[in-house]
Design a binder for these strands. Structure first.
Length: 900
DNA sequence: CAGTGAGCGAGCTTCCGCTTGACTT
């Protein structure tokens, strides 16, 4: 039977809407985007692979034509949609009403190719029966200008990410990434750390006292702080700048009095016998309105403050609540509640708190988000009447998050909190002649309103909205005495580091990122190693300083904090049909008279000095200390003493950049050995033996006395793979230091045969003739006979025998040669004896067939015969391998260092 | 950043925004 096919983005939404539309409609979901630019070479269509722009999948030479593909995991879903479309007599594209949703609708149309049936665009902003039925009755056409705007966004992000990232691979480190969003997020964290590094603390003193209003007051004792001395304000933290100096006042000079310890204490003793009277009582009404209902970012912030959840945990708990029908959609930038939701919230207010807490008219909340697309409602309990947390039967994190959402939603429809704020000034005369004024502040809330249901958390130690401080009911002229008085020292604090939640807030304020990506932005900068977490604080790694420096020096416009906001302006113009995609992308990529293009910028970067980029002076030029970001992590270089070599020392990975002061750097340089483990004294040489981590992995070495001649080199030996810095003993070390071991002499030539470990693993050496060994244990265990046997065989055969094929597949249809799978230095590969082809990411030894192997070999053959690799290339590869090993072992070494 | 000798398969990394299972333990 024929039906109308409705396609929405989310399966959970499809279920709900299916119920509202009834029979005659089949509601399915697209599960997000159904097509995209290919991710990597494996997904790129063969016909564009060899184009100069194949890697981008955008024909930058012809109108920025994109080449979209349906990702592997979406193919079966597309078939399912096509199947449903066969029996449909009408198609409703009901994806979200925002830029991405419009694009998904167009991709669906372009991919499903419905024939001879009407296609309508259907939109709604809330999932209620009335809204859905109205949307079905009033469809519109696809907005191609909006689709163009989305494509511009998508292509610009691809060009930015896939052109700039390779610059980082060449100049900083392989595997890094740059992008419109992540690079700015990283920059925010780096810039904050720079502020902290430049920060100079100021110290200031003040007087704090407890005052006594007398026995006729219920609230007798209350605290007050010194406010003025002879009519001049006493300096507090906010009077100091980041440089530790007093900020200038209106007159151009500081118009406050800065108390130091001596003066504060002198004043305190001069006030020992002072009596005070009330100089003024100022009372102001206090009023606070409820917070808007949750959107993604505010939910993430509050879940972090109140429940200690990371942004990704918050989102996955919310996802489960959404899928099970407890809350509305959790990725939204809207604070709007549907009419049904307002009614539900209001009825719960009167039910739970009484009608005196209910405002006469419903409250509405305008969006504070600048580029809000408002495709969804605010995040709220689902349904036309809300379940209280107890009624849900939820437990654990889901219960706590639901409770938070429920409370916030209900509170948003409650009355303001009102009360009084009171400031009391007390005056007195010091024995030394000064006139002093103390100040006390209080707050009394007379009607709690929404605060009864919900109080927002704070990131710093600001007073909470519902906090009350009661003061005695004093009048001007009343006498007051000081019960106690003390001089206290304070220091100004550097600006706080970002947390996940405050960074996300900052990004939202700057219109960077979208609700669906905030949590993953954090994951990206954590995974790339740009940032790490120390408690909840986000600390930048030194490599983030290098990357941010490269981008700010060479891609200034792209990493500008305003870049995304100005892009949004252009996209809006395109969406209104006032600008066009190709013109904008051409300007972005190739440049124009007023703007430098990305492409000429990237190709002209050969002369970036990678070494300089990774060098950061510590302290002043006189200190001569540099921090450098190397392949193996950050290290310090001491002053050049003219010897030609500078002292080097590792910087612990978890030392925050703002703690690397000149003193700390000198301390690290004084012990350049870094993390080393003392194993004992060598029984023969009498020298101390230590184990440490080096460029080529963990090793043991003797420590020469300080007065030893410089040309003396200590003996060293790499640990075997079977050993670790955690478990190495002095005995092991002595054995390793004794290498190479003399196995014996060749009876024919008399040449000595030795066994040792080298760059390519364990091997035997006889003069210039070397042979690999299969295991490290053979270095200690192999006998002369066995060694001679190895030497009796030609070099190559021994190696081939050592690596039998992992799998035999049969004969190649082209060459007729047997095809086998082997494990090689670069991973698993197939070979027909002449050509070798590495298995791709999606291939496996278990799953590979002869057909697939033949395909890979055919591709390989097309590239021509194997080139003889240059010596340089081979060396580089080997160094890379070692580097990986080093990194892997580094953590192990650290653990040991801590234990001891 | 410790320095130790071959002879030979490189291919991939990466963006931002939509959205869920599919995997394993």
């Amino acid at each position: 039977m024929a039906h109308k096919l409705v396609i929405v983005e989310s399966p959970a939404k499809a279920r709900t809407i299916g119920g509202y539309l009834g029979s005659g409609y089949v509601v399915e979901s697209s599960i997000g985007h159904i097509r995209d630019l290919p991710n990597n070479a494996a997904d790129t269509p063969a016909k564009i692979k060899d184009k100069p722009w194949g890697r981008l999948a955008i024909d930058v030479e012809n109108g920025f034509e994109p080449y979209y593909v349906v990702p592997r995991d979406k193919k079966s879903h597309i078939s399912k949609l096509k199947q449903l479309l066969k029996d449909a007599d009408e198609l409703f594209l009901a994806t979200d009403e925002d830029r991405e949703g419009e694009a998904i609708a167009w991709h669906l149309l372009d991919e499903l190719k419905p024939k001879n049936i009407p296609v309508k665009r259907m939109v709604f902003h809330e999932i209620t029966k009335a809204a859905i039925q109205e949307a079905a009755a009033n469809p519109r056409e696809l907005d191609m200008d909006l689709v163009e705007a989305q494509e511009t966004r998508r292509l610009l992000d691809r060009l930015y990410g896939y052109e700039v990232s390779p610059v980082l691979w060449r100049k900083v480190m392989s595997g890094l990434s740059a992008g419109r969003v992540q690079s700015v997020a990283t920059r925010l964290v780096v810039d904050k750390e720079k502020e902290r590094m430049a920060f100079r603390a100021a110290s200031y003193w003040d007087l704090e006292g407890t005052f006594d209003a007398g026995s006729k007051h219920d609230q007798r004792m209350f605290p007050a702080k010194l406010h003025t001395v002879d009519g001049t304000r006493v300096a507090t933290g906010s009077n100091f700048g980041q440089d530790g100096q007093l900020k200038a006042g209106r007159s151009g000079k500081a118009d406050v009095v800065h108390l130091d310890q001596r003066r504060a204490e002198a004043l305190a003793s001069a006030l020992a016998d002072t009596s005070y009277d009330v100089r003024s009582v100022e009372s102001k009404p206090y009023r606070r309105s409820p917070y808007a209902p949750f959107r993604t970012t505010t939910l993430q912030q509050e879940a972090s403050r109140k429940l200690g959840m990371s942004s990704s945990v918050t989102m996955s708990v919310a996802q489960r609540l959404y899928e099970n029908g407890f809350i509305t959609y959790m990725r939204t930038d809207s604070t709007t509640l549907s009419g049904n939701a307002i009614a539900a919230a209001r009825s719960q207010v009167s039910e739970l708190y009484g009608s005196e807490y209910l405002p006469d008219a419903p409250r509405t909340y305008a969006s504070k988000v600048k580029n809000a697309q408002e495709a969804h409602e605010a995040i709220r309990p689902a349904g036309d009447s809300f379940r209280t947390p107890a009624q849900t039967g939820l437990t654990g994190d889901q219960f706590r998050l639901y409770e938070l959402i429920w409370m916030r939603t209900v509170a948003s429809q409650m009355k303001d909190a009102v009360g009084q704020s009171v400031t009391i000034r007390l005056g007195g005369a010091a024995a030394s002649g000064e006139d002093v004024v103390f100040s006390a502040s209080g707050r009394v809330i007379t009607f709690h309103g929404f605060l009864k249901a919900y109080v927002e958390g704070t990131d710093d130690n600001a007073a909470k909205d519902d906090q009350e401080t009661r003061l005695p009911n004093l009048a001007e002229g009343d006498p007051v005495s000081a019960a106690s008085l003390s001089a206290n020292g304070h220091e100004t604090k550097p600006p706080a580091r970002y947390t996940e939640a405050t960074l996300i807030k900052e990004l939202e304020d700057r219109q960077i990122g979208r609700p669906s990506t905030y949590a993953s932005i954090i994951s990206t900068i954590l995974n790339r190693g740009y940032v790490y977490k120390k408690g909840t604080a986000l600390v930048p790694a030194w490599i983030a300083f290098s990357v941010t420096r490269l981008l700010t020096e060479h891609f200034e416009r792209l990493i500008d904090y305003e870049f995304t906001a100005s892009m949004e302006t252009v996209l809006d113009d395109i969406a209104r049909g006032e600008k066009d995609r190709v013109t904008e992308l051409t300007e972005f990529y190739y440049g124009s008279e007023r703007l430098q293009g990305l492409q000429p910028l990237v190709t002209g970067l050969g002369d970036i000095d990678a070494r300089e980029l990774a060098t950061f002076p510590v302290g002043s030029a006189e200190d001569g200390i540099d921090l450098r970001v190397g392949k193996y992590g950050p290290y310090l270089e001491g002053p050049d003493d003219g010897s030609g070599t500078r002292v080097r020392a590792n910087v612990p990975d978890d030392l925050p950049p703002d703690e690397l002061t000149v003193d700390k750097a000198k301390e690290l340089l004084a012990n350049p050995a870094g993390e080393e483990i003392e194993l004992g004294t060598h029984p023969e040489s009498g020298l101390p033996v230590v184990a440490k981590n080096g460029r080529f992995g963990p090793y043991v070495t003797e420590v020469l006395p300080e007065d030893a001649p410089k040309k003396d080199k200590p003996r060293t030996g790499s640990l075997f793979k079977s050993m670790s810095l955690d478990t190495i003993t002095l005995d092991d070390a002595v054995k390793l230091l004794a290498l190479p071991r003399v196995v014996g002499a060749d009876p024919e030539s008399g040449e000595e045969i030795t066994a040792q470990n080298g760059r390519y693993g364990p091997y035997l050496k006889k003069g210039t003739d070397s042979r690999s060994l299969t295991s490290e244990d053979q270095i200690f265990g192999i006998s002369l006979d066995e060694a001679l046997k190895i030497y009796s065989q030609p070099k190559h055969r021994g190696r081939a025998a050592a690596a039998p094929p992992l799998k035999e597949l049969g004969n190649d249809p082209v060459s007729g040669q047997p095809v086998v799978v082997k494990a090689g230095r670069f991973g698993e590969y197939v070979t027909d004896g002449e050509y070798n082809a590495t298995l791709r990411k999606d291939d496996s030894v278990e799953a590979i067939t002869l057909e697939r192997a033949a395909e890979l070999l055919a591709e390989r053959r097309a590239k021509g015969p194997a080139k003889k690799a240059a010596k340089k290339g081979a060396k580089k590869t080997a160094a890379k391998k070692t580097a990986k090993k080093t990194a892997a072992k580094k953590t192990a070494a650290k653990k040991t260092a801590r234990k001891s």
